[in-house]
Design a binder for these strands. Sequence first.
DNA 1: AAGTCGATATCGCCA
DNA 2: TGGCGATGTCGACTT
Lengths: 250, 250
Amino acid sequence: MRSLTRPSHEDALALVVDGIEAGALVTVVGRCTVEYEGRAESTLGPGERHVMLKPDGAALVHTDEGQQPVNWQPPDCDHDASLVDGELLVESHRETPTEQLAVRFDSLLQASAFGLTDERDLSLAGTEEDLRERVLADPDLVEAGFVPLATERATPAGAVDVYGEDSEDRAVVVELKRKRVGPDAVGQLTRYVDALERDLHAERAVRGILVAPSVTDRARRLLAERGLEFVALEPTAGSDADRQSDADSR
Amino acid sequence: MRSLTRPSHEDALALVVDGIEAGALVTVVGRCTVEYEGRAESTLGPGERHVMLKPDGAALVHTDEGQQPVNWQPPDCDHDASLVDGELLVESHRETPTEQLAVRFDSLLQASAFGLTDERDLSLAGTEEDLRERVLADPDLVEAGFVPLATERATPAGAVDVYGEDSEDRAVVVELKRKRVGPDAVGQLTRYVDALERDLHAERAVRGILVAPSVTDRARRLLAERGLEFVALEPTAGSDADRQSDADSR
DNA sequence: AAGTCGATATCGCCA
DNA sequence: TGGCGATGTCGACTT
């Protein structure tokens, strides 16, 4: 780890260049302007910000506000640093699509380079995948007699989350969502049901069921208009939201 | 600005607590484990990471890879720091929804606190808003004789980007997208057209036009099935993508 | 390389 | 505060 406090632009340049070369995570904090051009275009006037250059090619410019960076570059970019008129210039560039970020500092508070090692073994629960496993483990949660036949079943409109049959051998399309859904999810389910009805040549009825913790009013209305159904279900059995839902439904 | 290199946990705690109190942007780099519980749940085993606590309440945990933080907390959280078994523990918590993040360090590379000031005047071009202005300034870009009557026109299915009439007085719903679109945009346009047809009691024909730089094959097929139309148009007149599009259409 | 869709999406706007 | 849709969305997975 190397770090410089209120460094000269020359010293900071050396640290940044060496850090990028060494595969370190580099941070520079100071007053700067930022320009971006690529999928869109943006300019950001002078202000004090925190800039992070990652060894995988990602770049982040953070102000003192917001979870999201004010400017950034995705992984697989090439980082570069140089002096322009005696001031530190940090650039990041990529192709496909062509886009570049330029950060020009006029004063420097700190420059650091960290050689970080990380196993990166994040374990996450409460996702749509968990909801799918819950439904497959106990299909009656969707409806008594529901039989899942496939997941990610292909249709001309996209892949259906869970495809199956009900107790009367009707085709059933299930769309899963890990949280409360709006009109977009109804549109998705509609596309799949329509596509499957075409695929099955109208030989069979196709039911569409949206499985999610809850729906908005507008989404519920859209479901009704289209003859689609809703089943309330959480991704995990013991969640707080689940208990709240139970309370609501009393 | 204050910064400590390889500080003791006690010294780091003092700096972090003072920094949070003072409204500084605080960073801590070191080996840590991370636990999150709230909208979902996650655990992250030991590894070296960069943690940022913003004065607006946002928290970010970055590894050496990826543009996105491996763990985070949105703005308006309360940050806290303490010692547990002699080790630095950083926590961030909020209600609505209830969620909390806990970062426990077992070794520290650096702890810093920055008092940043930023005007935050980002200027961005190439957005859907730019595309709308382009269409309103020259409606013939959509179709000769098209007359815009309203933007964000309300329907039971949501607000229509641009609503207007064609040269034969048919109602026209225009959905704008700043970049190449897939099936979801067709679903959106479908919802608006359906809703408007109900609203107008089938007194008038309703056309739906998707305006975007380009569409995927599947989206084009879905448009055709529904009798909807597509017009190729970029958010800005002089973009590279525009010239490419012009070249393609020759 | 492009298409498709989930996400602890985040963010801004508006009722 | 919740609903709704845009985002330079990102990221993972499939073709």
